[in-house]
Computed example of a mutant assay.
Amino acid sequence: MPFLSDRFHDQQQGGTPALNGLNRTGTFDAAAIAERIGRRVLGQDDIVEEIRQALVVVQAGFHDRERPLSTLLLVGPTGVGKTEIVRRLAAELRSGPDDFCRVDMGQLAQEHYAAALSGAPPGYSGSREGSSVFDRPAIEGSPFIPGIVLFDEVEKAHPVVLRALLGLLDRGMLALSNGEQRISFRNAFVFLTSNLGSADIARRRGSRRQRVLDAIPGTGGLRRSQDHATIDAALRDFFDPEFLNRIDRVLRFNEISRHVAHDVVQLHLNEARELLRRRGVEMECRPGALEALVDVGFDPVHGARSLQRALRRHVLAPTAELLVAARADATEQLRVRLEPEAAGRSGVRVRSV
């Protein structure tokens, strides 16, 4: 099967219709895709730019045809958008945000799980079928659609499992244990995520000295440099050099700042209001409600996930209570108001109006 980059400049008669970020010739607009991803993955402009550059290299056909389209290691604390950026790319290049192969490396923590990558050896159940943890269609793609695979939390896998990935990352091919089949990764974007270094960063941030430095204006750049150095040291300590040498780019995600948290809450609140509108609920947001929701949910350690939990607990759950009660009373339409708590109390409340 020819690879995606070979098809970028080939005009085919009767080609497939446009799919998300792909146009009818199978090429894509890397800048437009990056711009749309940036609307959803907030506070990570440098990462989005790196994704754009990786797409441009593939679009131009300048990548190595005997390796995956691109191999990217995404590193940073939880809740900063590592998995979300893969989902957004899948939404652009494939049929939707969940249309990619995700391998949870935390489930491959034992040495014998290395067989899950290459399948059962000859003589064992499933060897002829070539079964493995991989979703082959999502990896190999199709004539105009690249594959995407995510090795999530790669540091949790056993070292033997990681070594089993070396050939895949280097040559873009995985030979199954039955000796009869291979899976090609040469038409796929390969992502790996890791939280290495995040615990060390969190401990340093919690120190009294660091809190004093963080309070000094203009020290954000120095703090990010320290974080990146901590992450790089953790990667060198954990991974063998030959493993890191097979990574095209290491993308270091920044933690969610309070300013970015405000934008994240606004994004998810807009989505929640649209969801409620489809359920027949109109929501009005009073001044101060958004900031109060940030106050309740902002946690630099847990990032956007903490904000999403606050939204579910303080907005969606009480609104659901009001909606169920309104339906019991045969009320045709429900209008609610999101407002900050009364003076002297923190948080937000939802009221029926």
Score class of each variant (00 low, 15 high):
A114D: 00
D104Q: 14
C101N: 02
P97G: 04
E111C: 12
E153V: 10
L165M: 11
G96K: 12
L117C: 01
Y124L: 14
R88L: 12
R88F: 12
G96D: 09
A109Q: 14
Q110V: 11
P159S: 15
L162F: 09
L89R: 02
L166G: 10
G76M: 06
V161R: 01
P77Q: 12
E129Q: 15
S142K: 10
V149M: 01
G79H: 07
L166F: 11
R102V: 06
A157V: 03
H158N: 12
E92Q: 11
R163S: 15
S132N: 07
E92I: 12
L108N: 01
L89Y: 04
V160E: 04
V86M: 01
A138R: 09
Y124S: 13
C101K: 01
A164D: 03
P159Q: 15
V86T: 08
P159E: 15
A116N: 06
A138S: 13
T78A: 11
P146R: 01
A90R: 03
F100C: 02
D99E: 14
R102D: 08
V133I: 10
I145A: 12
P159Y: 14
G123P: 14
G76C: 06
S95C: 13
E111R: 12
I139T: 02
L162G: 07
A116H: 05
Y124A: 13
T78H: 14
A114M: 10
A120K: 00
V75D: 02
G123R: 10
A164E: 08
P121H: 05
V103Q: 01
L166D: 05
E140D: 11
D152Y: 01
Y113T: 11
G123Q: 09
R128H: 15
L108G: 00
R87N: 10
P122D: 13
M105P: 00
Q107V: 06
S142I: 09
E153C: 04
R102K: 10
S118K: 03
G96E: 12
G81V: 09
L150M: 07
Y124V: 09
D135L: 11
S118G: 05
V80Y: 02
Y113K: 08
G130D: 11
R102I: 05
D104K: 07
Y113P: 00
G81A: 05
F151W: 06
S127R: 07
A115T: 08
I85N: 03
Q107N: 11
D135E: 13
P143R: 15
E153P: 01
R102G: 05
K82Y: 08
E111L: 09
S118F: 00
G81C: 08
M105A: 03
I148D: 05
E92M: 10
E92L: 04
K82T: 09
A120Y: 02
D135V: 04
L117F: 04
G123C: 10
Y113V: 04
E129S: 12
E129W: 13
A120H: 03
E153L: 07
L165W: 01
L117H: 00
L165R: 00
L150A: 02
A116E: 07
M105F: 07
I148W: 08
A114K: 03
I148V: 07
L150E: 00
D135P: 00
G123M: 08
A115F: 02
A115I: 03
V103I: 11
